[in-house]
Amino acid sequence: MTRDMVLRVVAKLLIPFILLFALYVQFHGDFGPGGGFQAGVILAAAMVFYAIVFGLDNARKVLPDRLVETMVAAGVLLYLGVGVAGPLLGGNFLDYFVLAADPVAGQHRGIFWIELGVAITVCGVMLKVYYLFAGRGPEDD
Protein backbone atom coordinates (compact mmCIF):
# COMPACT_ATOMS: atom_id res chain seq x y z
CA MET A 1 0.00 0.00 0.00
CA THR A 2 1.39 3.36 -0.95
CA ARG A 3 1.49 6.20 1.55
CA ASP A 4 1.65 8.81 -1.19
CA MET A 5 -1.34 11.09 -0.60
CA VAL A 6 -1.42 12.36 -4.21
CA LEU A 7 -1.59 8.84 -5.64
CA ARG A 8 -4.31 7.78 -3.22
CA VAL A 9 -6.48 10.83 -3.89
CA VAL A 10 -6.02 10.55 -7.66
CA ALA A 11 -6.84 6.84 -7.52
CA LYS A 12 -10.00 7.50 -5.52
CA LEU A 13 -11.03 10.16 -8.01
CA LEU A 14 -10.24 8.13 -11.12
CA ILE A 15 -11.41 4.61 -10.29
CA PRO A 16 -15.18 5.37 -10.28
CA PHE A 17 -14.84 6.92 -13.73
CA ILE A 18 -12.81 3.97 -15.04
CA LEU A 19 -15.48 1.58 -13.73
CA LEU A 20 -18.23 3.71 -15.29
CA PHE A 21 -16.31 3.77 -18.59
CA ALA A 22 -16.01 -0.02 -18.49
CA LEU A 23 -19.78 -0.31 -18.03
CA TYR A 24 -20.31 2.17 -20.86
CA VAL A 25 -18.01 0.19 -23.16
CA GLN A 26 -19.86 -2.99 -22.20
CA PHE A 27 -23.44 -1.85 -22.63
CA HIS A 28 -22.91 0.66 -25.41
CA GLY A 29 -20.95 -1.86 -27.48
CA ASP A 30 -23.99 -2.40 -29.70
CA PHE A 31 -23.91 1.21 -30.83
CA GLY A 32 -20.33 2.42 -30.50
CA PRO A 33 -16.87 0.90 -30.34
CA GLY A 34 -16.34 -1.61 -27.58
CA GLY A 35 -17.69 -4.87 -26.32
CA GLY A 36 -17.14 -7.58 -23.80
CA PHE A 37 -13.39 -8.01 -24.17
CA GLN A 38 -12.61 -4.30 -23.89
CA ALA A 39 -14.98 -3.82 -20.96
CA GLY A 40 -13.53 -6.80 -19.10
CA VAL A 41 -10.00 -5.55 -19.60
CA ILE A 42 -10.83 -2.01 -18.48
CA LEU A 43 -12.60 -3.38 -15.41
CA ALA A 44 -9.56 -5.51 -14.58
CA ALA A 45 -7.26 -2.52 -15.14
CA ALA A 46 -9.29 -0.48 -12.67
CA MET A 47 -8.99 -3.25 -10.06
CA VAL A 48 -5.25 -3.62 -10.71
CA PHE A 49 -4.89 0.14 -10.21
CA TYR A 50 -6.77 -0.16 -6.94
CA ALA A 51 -4.58 -3.07 -5.87
CA ILE A 52 -1.37 -1.16 -6.66
CA VAL A 53 -2.38 1.94 -4.71
CA PHE A 54 -4.27 0.39 -1.78
CA GLY A 55 -2.51 -2.95 -1.53
CA LEU A 56 -3.24 -6.48 -2.65
CA ASP A 57 -4.97 -7.43 0.60
CA ASN A 58 -7.52 -4.64 0.28
CA ALA A 59 -8.14 -5.59 -3.37
CA ARG A 60 -8.70 -9.19 -2.25
CA LYS A 61 -11.33 -7.90 0.17
CA VAL A 62 -13.16 -6.16 -2.67
CA LEU A 63 -12.94 -9.10 -5.09
CA PRO A 64 -11.97 -12.27 -3.20
CA ASP A 65 -9.93 -15.00 -4.92
CA ARG A 66 -12.84 -17.40 -4.87
CA LEU A 67 -15.08 -14.91 -6.70
CA VAL A 68 -12.38 -14.14 -9.29
CA GLU A 69 -11.81 -17.85 -9.94
CA THR A 70 -15.55 -18.34 -10.31
CA MET A 71 -15.64 -15.48 -12.82
CA VAL A 72 -12.99 -17.20 -14.95
CA ALA A 73 -15.29 -20.17 -15.55
CA ALA A 74 -18.66 -18.43 -15.20
CA GLY A 75 -18.19 -16.26 -18.29
CA VAL A 76 -17.48 -19.22 -20.59
CA LEU A 77 -20.39 -21.12 -19.04
CA LEU A 78 -22.72 -18.15 -19.62
CA TYR A 79 -21.59 -18.01 -23.25
CA LEU A 80 -22.10 -21.76 -23.67
CA GLY A 81 -25.46 -21.47 -21.91
CA VAL A 82 -26.64 -18.94 -24.49
CA GLY A 83 -25.35 -21.32 -27.17
CA VAL A 84 -27.20 -24.31 -25.71
CA ALA A 85 -30.38 -22.27 -25.28
CA GLY A 86 -30.63 -22.30 -29.10
CA PRO A 87 -31.18 -26.07 -29.51
CA LEU A 88 -33.44 -26.16 -26.43
CA LEU A 89 -35.73 -23.56 -28.00
CA GLY A 90 -35.78 -25.31 -31.36
CA GLY A 91 -32.95 -23.58 -33.20
CA ASN A 92 -29.26 -24.25 -33.83
CA PHE A 93 -26.31 -23.92 -31.44
CA LEU A 94 -25.60 -20.20 -30.84
CA ASP A 95 -28.77 -19.35 -32.77
CA TYR A 96 -30.05 -16.10 -31.28
CA PHE A 97 -33.13 -15.79 -33.48
CA VAL A 98 -35.11 -18.18 -31.25
CA LEU A 99 -34.27 -16.38 -28.00
CA ALA A 100 -37.23 -14.01 -28.31
CA ALA A 101 -40.52 -13.90 -30.22
CA ASP A 102 -39.11 -11.25 -32.55
CA PRO A 103 -35.91 -12.47 -34.31
CA VAL A 104 -34.19 -9.06 -34.11
CA ALA A 105 -34.98 -8.81 -30.38
CA GLY A 106 -33.59 -12.34 -30.03
CA GLN A 107 -30.35 -11.26 -31.69
CA HIS A 108 -30.14 -8.32 -29.31
CA ARG A 109 -30.70 -10.55 -26.31
CA GLY A 110 -28.16 -13.16 -27.44
CA ILE A 111 -25.46 -10.56 -28.17
CA PHE A 112 -26.06 -8.90 -24.79
CA TRP A 113 -25.55 -12.11 -22.84
CA ILE A 114 -22.56 -13.45 -24.73
CA GLU A 115 -20.81 -10.06 -24.47
CA LEU A 116 -21.43 -10.22 -20.73
CA GLY A 117 -19.92 -13.72 -20.66
CA VAL A 118 -16.80 -12.55 -22.52
CA ALA A 119 -16.40 -9.59 -20.14
CA ILE A 120 -16.72 -11.78 -17.02
CA THR A 121 -14.14 -14.33 -18.21
CA VAL A 122 -11.63 -11.74 -19.46
CA CYS A 123 -11.88 -9.68 -16.29
CA GLY A 124 -11.56 -12.79 -14.13
CA VAL A 125 -8.49 -14.11 -15.97
CA MET A 126 -6.69 -10.75 -15.97
CA LEU A 127 -7.33 -10.20 -12.28
CA LYS A 128 -6.40 -13.75 -11.33
CA VAL A 129 -3.11 -13.51 -13.22
CA TYR A 130 -2.36 -10.23 -11.47
CA TYR A 131 -3.24 -11.66 -8.04
CA LEU A 132 -0.97 -14.67 -8.68
CA PHE A 133 1.94 -12.52 -9.86
CA ALA A 134 1.61 -9.85 -7.20
CA GLY A 135 1.09 -12.38 -4.41
CA ARG A 136 4.55 -13.90 -4.92
CA GLY A 137 7.58 -12.57 -3.14
CA PRO A 138 11.21 -13.28 -4.11
CA GLU A 139 11.34 -15.78 -1.22
CA ASP A 140 8.54 -17.93 -2.68
CA ASP A 141 10.77 -19.80 -5.15
Partner: peptide, 11 residues
Protein backbone atom coordinates in the same frame (compact mmCIF):
# COMPACT_ATOMS: atom_id res chain seq x y z
CA UNK B 1 -31.48 -5.27 -40.44
CA UNK B 2 -30.84 -8.87 -39.37
CA UNK B 3 -29.33 -8.23 -35.95
CA UNK B 4 -30.70 -4.78 -35.08
CA UNK B 5 -27.22 -3.78 -33.91
CA UNK B 6 -25.92 -0.57 -35.53
CA UNK B 7 -22.27 -1.38 -34.76
CA UNK B 8 -21.29 -3.86 -37.48
CA UNK B 9 -18.14 -4.90 -35.60
CA UNK B 10 -20.24 -6.12 -32.68
CA UNK B 11 -22.75 -7.76 -35.03
Amino acid sequence: RETGVPNVVTA
